[in-house]
C-alpha cells in the first residue's frame, strides 16, 4: 500500500483507539467525542508525515524515531490546551502519543509498499 495512505489509516485507527482510552478516566468521559476526534486527527497527521518520510528514507529505526518525534510534537500541541478546569495533561497525552507515532512510523516503513516512480 502507498506509504502516506497507510500512514493515515494506521495513524487514524491507533489515534482513535488512543482517544477511546480516555473512557477509563471518569473526569474526561464527558468530552470523549472531542477527544476521540482530536486524537484521530492527530494520528492521521502523524501518519501522513511518517508516510512521506518513509518515501524518502528507507530505514525502520529512522522511521520509528521520526514517528516518535512527530507524535511527541503533536501530542505536546494538544496537551498545551488545558481542560475546562485549567488543568494540563502533559504526561497522559504526550507519552502514549509518542508511542502511537512510533508505531505509525514503524508501520509505514515495514508494511508500506514501494511507490512507483
Amino acid at each position: 500500500m502507498n506509504k502516506p495512505i497507510l500512514g493515515i489509516g494506521t495513524g487514524a485507527v491507533l489515534g482513535a483507539f488512543d482517544g477511546l482510552t480516555a473512557l477509563f478516566t471518569p473526569e474526561a468521559a464527558p468530552q470523549i467525542v472531542g477527544i476521540v476526534i482530536g486524537s484521530t486527527l492527530k494520528g492521521a497527521i502523524a501518519g501522513v508525515a511518517a508516510g512521506v518520510f518513509a518515501r524518502k528514507v528507507q530505514s525502520v529505526p529512522k522511521g520509528i524515531l521520526f514517528g516518535l518525534a512527530v507524535g511527541l510534537l503533536l501530542a505536546y500541541l494538544v496537551a498545551a490546551f488545558p481542560d475546562p478546569n485549567g488543568k494540563h495533561y502533559y504526561f497522559e497525552i504526550m507519552l502514549p502519543g509518542s508511542i502511537v507515532g512510533a508505531l505509525v512510523g514503524f508501520a509505514t516503513q515495514r508494511y508500506g509498499g514501494s511507490v512507483a516512480a
Partner: peptide, 22 residues
C-alpha cells in the same frame, strides 16, 4: 517483533498512567 514491542510499550505506559499518574 518490533511491532509487538511497541504495542507492549504502549500498553505498559497506559497501565502505568492509569494506576499511578491519575
Amino acid at each position: 517483533r518490533v511491532a509487538l514491542l511497541l504495542v507492549l510499550a504502549y500498553l505498559l505506559m497506559r497501565t502505568v498512567l492509569f494506576f499511578f499518574v491519575r
